[in-house]
Design a protein around this nucleic acid. Sequence first.
DNA 1: AGACTAACCTGAAAGC
DNA 2: TGCTTTCAGGTTAGTC
Length: 292
Amino acid sequence: MPELPEVEITRRQIAPLLVGRTVAAVVTTASSPFFLTSPGTLRRRLSGRRFERLDRIGKYLVAGLDGGAQLLLHLGMTGQVFAAGVRSLRLLSSTRGGALTPEGQAGGFVPDRHTHLRLHFDDGGPDVFFRDVRKFGRVELLAPGASSPRLERLGVDALAARAGDLAAAVRRRRAPIKAVLLDQSVLAGVGNIYADEALFLSSIRPSRPANRVTKPQCEQLLAAVQRVLHRSLETGGASISDFVQPSGEDGRYQDERLVYGREGEPCPRCHTPVVRTVIAGRGTHYCPRCQR
DNA sequence: AGACTAACCTGAAAGC
DNA sequence: TGCTTTCAGGTTAGTC
């Protein structure tokens, strides 16, 4: 599932295919909650605009257009951004399946009913697609000068955060520490996988009330968060659900998971079986012996 | 305000 | 075999 590393990898790979190019036409699927800006408006307002930059804030991609408008993209759970002509694209199925679609093997992606946004450019080069099977992703076009409540709600980007940022949030909260890690208004970009991994690395049980995490432990925890995020960036992200890099390749971070999705397997540190529970409505994995 | 829950969505996997 | 049910999870809206 796309969290900060997956979104950042998408940004780095797709930026060269976007920046400097002018939109000639936009093709979308029908209106749905996926479109915070209606398909018709997107088609009208995007055509003729040139992309000037592509940034990331938390799990959001923010594309700056000439004239000052901004295109917001969120990959949700199953979002995939890539360009036409990509080979060996894994369109569906989990890492367990891993099969390539016939279309992918042939090297030509055929837009399907899950391809909600298709950008065609005036240079005749490859189209850029935004595909999302479960439609938890979002697209929004911000008018020049307009702000977005979604972005304003975000806390400091997880990679830029300092220990004090986490310690301040933790102090007054009695919710499980994991819920605080997942709260995008505290640290933007942390999702379920990296929360579990970071809590394991810092030996903190996910259910522990946030206000029972000491200041030194906050420092350890944030360091662990940033360590797993950086390591995932190095390995191309985690292709656990449907994430694929725009290049079409799978990430490899899933091979380095210590506890996430490893219920019943031995803890890499003490060999006690990893436990799975539900916290903050999310599957949560931890070692009952190492994590207190 | 903080905490908790339902809802959104679809395919995969489990259950029968 | 095949149909039905359950599960997964980022984010927001709604409730207490």
